[in-house]
Computed example of a mutant assay.
Amino acid sequence: MKKSFYLFLLSSILFLSCQKQYSQNTNTVSPDVFASKIEKTAKPQILDVRTAEEFNAEHLANAKNIDWLGTEFDTKSATLDKNKDVYVYCRSGARSKKACARLKELGFTSIYELDGGFVKWSTEGHASTKE
């Protein structure tokens, strides 16, 4: 009985520590905070993980498009500086969550995810670039 309890306790600690580590590297922030952080960062690494079609229609200024659904996400992400903040967004937040988790696995140390994605960004009146 004691052995089962200790095994459960150890498993729980390991699980919770992994969850905490994710939250330390990835910060989901509102469009206002996202915009403020980008403005205060010299040469910010802004990553749009939508498709090329979505990106070409409209995107954040100075964003780099690396399609999460494409086949070259890891390769193209390797061109970014892992030790600098990276700002990630998609349309509504589903793809950016997955992309942030992958960036963490690839060794990125500080990741900011736009809560609500580009939809919320636009709804709240923040600027974007139309091509």
Rank of each mutant, 00 (worst) to 15 (best):
K97W: 13
S36W: 08
T26V: 15
N65H: 01
A78W: 00
D74C: 05
A127T: 11
A63C: 02
E124C: 02
G70V: 04
N56F: 10
N83Y: 03
H126K: 07
I13Y: 12
K82Y: 08
N83F: 04
E39N: 13
L69I: 03
P31S: 07
T109F: 06
E131N: 13
Q21P: 10
T75S: 11
D48N: 02
A99E: 05
Q24W: 14
K43D: 00
F15E: 09
F118E: 07
W68K: 05
D32W: 05
G107M: 12
D115L: 14
Y112L: 07
A35F: 02
L47V: 06
M1P: 15
T123D: 15
S128H: 13
F108T: 00
F5Y: 14
L9F: 14
T123I: 13
D81T: 04
K64Y: 03
A52I: 09
G70Q: 05
R91M: 11
A63Y: 04
N62Y: 02
S92L: 04
A99L: 10
V119R: 08
L10S: 09
G93Y: 08
D67K: 01
S30G: 09
A94I: 15
A99R: 08
L114F: 00
A127M: 10
D85G: 07
S11C: 13
K43M: 04
Y87I: 00
A101Q: 14
A52P: 09
I38K: 03
A35P: 06
F73R: 00
S36M: 08
S23G: 13
K3P: 08
I111V: 01
Q24P: 11
A35N: 12
T51L: 03
I13M: 05
D32R: 10
L80H: 04
T51H: 02
S12D: 11
D74Q: 13
T41M: 06
F108W: 07
S4M: 15
G70S: 06
Y112S: 01
D74S: 11
S110Q: 06
I13R: 02
D81M: 06
K82G: 10
D85H: 06
